[in-house]
Design a protein around this nucleic acid. Structure first.
Lengths: 221, 221, 221, 221
DNA sequence: TATGAATGAGGCTTCATTCAT
DNA sequence: TATGAATGAAGCCTCATTCAT
């Protein structure tokens, strides 16, 4: 006997737990593919479970989103912690944003989540706050170290991040998984105090790729 | 023969033309307010015309969009022409983008249009091409004049433009009609060869404004 | 040719008109049977028409209710006019209320309509206003003629009317189509200045009938 | 024997009893707030108990209602006893009805219960019977004492009571906790043999209050 | 037996597209 | 040809009741 829990679990508990997991899994997949606005019924269907059951487990979309991303988001926060500890604030900031964007690129759900403020998603509050603190700290230290432009505020960075971040899925779809590195580098260069030394990463978009990427953006809302 | 070419449909031709105009007008208004995904019926109703008639005139949404913006977009192209003539390429580029963004801020339709490639919208091709040429020209001359970073491509600029452009409506809603000037300036600073001399325009976002703006972005699609 | 309309009516107009009538008819029936809260879909089904079509004709429940009852309600208003002209105000009031209650007894829809204020039902406003004016006028003249208690206000009457009126369908179901006459008479006797001379109309409820009636009332809301 | 009768289920019996009490308590609260049609699950959740357990204890809604109100209703019956003892039958009747209405005003559940006959609620039979006897007795004595109209039957009173009683929650919501006193007084005046001497209690409704009250009544069922 | 969970069915509303005159 | 109308399909949500442990 390794743990007492297994034997204690009464009645249907295990089954429900299984359903809950199926739902979260399905929701994760669907959110990843379609974004956070994906129809609830699609998720339920994908899980092979009645939609009313989904509602029982997660009365609101926000609750479901919260459950799906709670763990994933802690990953982002960990990256933030690490970045804060960096000697060179600029390097820390850069590295942090790269990590964040890697996440945004892979997953429409994470993307929506990080580049929007969804009312009612609890865990999100924490991530956004943490995110802001990380950026704020690194900016302020960067300013002291002379690598960050004096006037740049955390809001500047966070907003630019969101703006660029939202386009990442379309971009990667059109031009490969690393395509976001280049516009991100450009953005960062705008924040620097000193002129940018490093060459831009990732090859430039071709015209076709640009067209493709824009097409994938689609009309808003 | 005093009338128009086709005598078989005496008043018809003119009637249809009138309808077409009414539809385009209505669509323009609706697109401006609601974006390009606005319900077809709303447009037809606003024009005071049956939706099936709309379909007859414009079998697809793209066709309607095309018709609506064909004329408007020439305005943007004119701004491009003017910019191309600028002595100082950097000033020309800056001015051009400011003009473009002013348009993006005012009109959800133009915004969708310029920051996306809608399959099947013919006239759009022309604008995007023109746009690209303008940027390309100014970039290349800027490079010669030493004001633009060597590596920056037109695609870099156009893509960044689209990314930032799409957020403009939410941004102006949250922080006022000039709020886009600041992130645009930041973006431009990233493109410069020389370090940015000018201070950032427009006050920085407050945290609340940022939150508000992000909330207004909403999930994609 | 007796009228030009028939031949002029273009296209589908006649068909749609037919549908509209079918819908109103069906709605009338369903409202009469089930009251104004009856499911929209049931009405559409009863009319043999898709529910979306119903929505096209009547975008809100209130619009449908309005269409169904607009004509019926003018009947009530006519009765009001007549009552106002009565020499003996008390007789006029009595007669009026009897007419009104006859309507309430026959039809759950009318009943809901008259004993409730449904937001958005235009024609209803007029009836309620007319109703109030009738009652007000007759009360005030009745007071002058010494047949109505001094303190009684139109609101007193209208409210009592509503309270009693709502029970009328259950009452008639349990005790016959004239059963409402008796409680109405009792109510009126409470409004009189002089002691009631006339015997109560309609036989008294039996205990069983009372039980039955109450059962039919059902829980509120 | 120190324990309870059934020794086969040592803690069970007591547990079940406890659950039963919790359920009744919760149901009482919910019924009071929302009326007798409140969702079953809400009650179970409020009790912190599974809904299936609720079903086990009370297979039908009626059974639950019965259990909840069995005790409460004895209070009403006590008031009846007291009223029966009154010297002046009319005063007794009046006082009784005031007491009853106070209850109707405070509690949606009691209201539904007293103004309706719910199929299958056993205990209700008793209350209604008791109620009827009280009214019957007082009426008959009032007739002897010359204060009650000869023709008025218990059913007349009980029905009028129900009709007015059901409107009490809406009325108090619209016009204050004592607003029911005035229409009740009017009703009673209709039952008197002698002309009403006392002025009406509680101020008259304003037009706005009337509208508000009617709106709150809502469609039946 | 007690229980949490599951679900089918019902209700509302919107919209793109097709139909029938 | 021009048109108003029709509709199927999709999305949302709630609740009474049954199921399976």
């Amino acid at each position: 006997m390794t743990g007492p829990k297994d034997t204690t679990t009464p009645g249907r508990r295990r089954d429900a737990q299984r359903n809950r997991e199926l739902l979260i899994e399905a929701a994760h997949d669907v959110f990843t593919e379609q974004g956070l606005h994906a129809p609830i019924d699609v998720i339920a269907r994908r899980a092979g479970i009645g939609n009313a059951t989904l509602y029982r487990h997660f009365p609101t979309r926000a609750a479901l989103v919260d459950a799906v991303f709670r763990d994933l988001l802690t990953g982002t926060m960990a990256a933030g912690e690490e970045a804060r500890a960096a000697e060179d604030a600029w390097a820390g900031l850069t590295g942090y944003l790269v990590t964040v964007f890697s996440g945004l690129a892979a997953d429409r759900g994470t993307n929506d989540l990080m580049t929007t403020h969804l009312e009612g998603v609890e865990s999100l509050q924490a991530v956004h706050a943490h995110n802001r603190h990380t950026v704020e700290l690194l900016l302020s230290r960067g300013r002291e170290q002379g690598t960050v432009r004096a006037e740049v505020t955390p809001e500047d960075v966070l907003f630019a991040l969101a703006a660029l971040g939202r386009t990442v899925p379309a971009l990667t779809a059109a031009a490969g998984p690393d395509a976001w590195r280049r516009p991100l580098a450009l953005l960062l260069d705008g924040l620097r105090a000193a002129p940018a030394a490093a060459p831009l990463p990732s090859p430039a978009l071709t015209t076709t790729q640009l067209t493709d990427a824009l097409q994938r953006l689609g009309p808003q809302h």
